[in-house]
Design a protein around this nucleic acid. Structure first.
Lengths: 185, 185
DNA sequence: CACAAAACTGACCGATCGGCCAGAGTCTGA
DNA sequence: TCAGACTCTGGCCGATCGGTCAGTTTTGTG
């Protein structure tokens, strides 16, 4: 059982760092100190390995979306906070979906990820139609997700404590997304 | 000479849509109505084909950076405007660099792209050190770049005229990046 | 200890990849 | 007309990929 989890985390790290297509099962096996056939014993296929890695994050995200869709209207400030918490909780998976989602949408689990992203955008577009609003949304969520994804690559994150990142992201997102209530723009 | 340019634009579209690794030379040849060997006649290798596609955008970006680095201090508002213009001008290349840069940094031209991105971040970090400022920068540029990259995937852009996109992006970026001068935050 | 289930492995398969090469058309200027 | 450069192609190569399978080792349990 330990190897099973090792393989998952090793594969996650490699998929995020080098890309799904560029990461061979052989390399995952080498890093785990086992054989390629052993990897395919624990995960029936490379696609299912990816699905196993990504699905939990997608489940959480879908749950949040449905809660809001069925639970009456949308309270942006509240959603933003929970959304950021989910991104931070699954912050290792975010680069995978963000950077490689478009490339891999023939893989079922990645197609599902794209679909979920689309539902989030629709959630926000209900109330806003102007180009400025649309782009503000795109920059906000794309920016947060991409920042988490590219943080270490560009040396942006470093050793910043998570709760500091959390509060800063919330501030930025509130400025961008929550309709001006207190501050004039 | 026409085929040469056709191959470049076809490859660009495919690399951006399906990913560099997932796009075979055979597929590019098929879409162009020629043979794989013919592609390799025009471009010595797949990597050089990618370099040929990406390099012009990188050249422009590097030129902008050096102008600012050597031309005394940084005037953010000015830089932001020129930066957005460059992103819009090369907006087909942006998805490639943004989404696949991390994955492909063993390819020389993509490593150069990452290096250029890093220089841009340093340009902005000179004056700002707080976590909030760092993340604000990350969200701003990551968000703009990613929005351009993922626009059509999430149905965000659609048929919005470019100059409208331009002015909206400038507004958003000025809010995020230009130190509060007129508006209090 | 016995024995079945689980875990694991080496060898192999077909497919596809990027790249190479000898040669065949095609075009142009002397 | 002919020589030489340019353009293009089919066929081939070695490497690597994901995946299969028969069979061995390890483990847990009565």
């Amino acid at each position: 059982m330990a190897l099973h989890d090792d393989l998952r985390s090793i594969a996650l790290a490699e998929f995020a760092a080098s890309g799904y297509a560029a990461t061979s099962l052989q390399r995952i096996a080498d890093l785990a100190g086992t054989s390629k056939a052993s990897v395919l014993y624990h995960f029936a296929s490379k696609e299912l390995l990816l699905a196993d890695i990504v699905s939990p994050a997608l489940d959480d995200m879908e749950r949040l979306i449905e809660t809001i869709e069925h639970g009456g209207g949308l309270r942006r400030a509240e959603f933003v906070e929970q959304f950021v918490d989910l991104l931070l909780m699954h912050r290792e998976v975010v680069p995978l979906v963000i950077n490689q989602g478009a490339t891999l949408d023939d893989v079922p689990v990645m197609h599902r990820a794209t679909e979920i992203l689309r539902r989030v955008t629709e959630l926000f577009r209900l109330a806003s139609g102007s180009t400025l609003e649309k782009l503000r949304f795109g920059v906000a969520f794309g920016g947060v997700a991409y920042t988490l994804a590219a943080a270490e690559r560009l040396g942006l994150s470093g050793e910043i404590p998570i709760d500091e990142v959390r509060s800063a992201l919330l501030l930025i997102l509130r400025d961008l997304l929550v309709p001006a209530e207190s501050t004039a723009r």
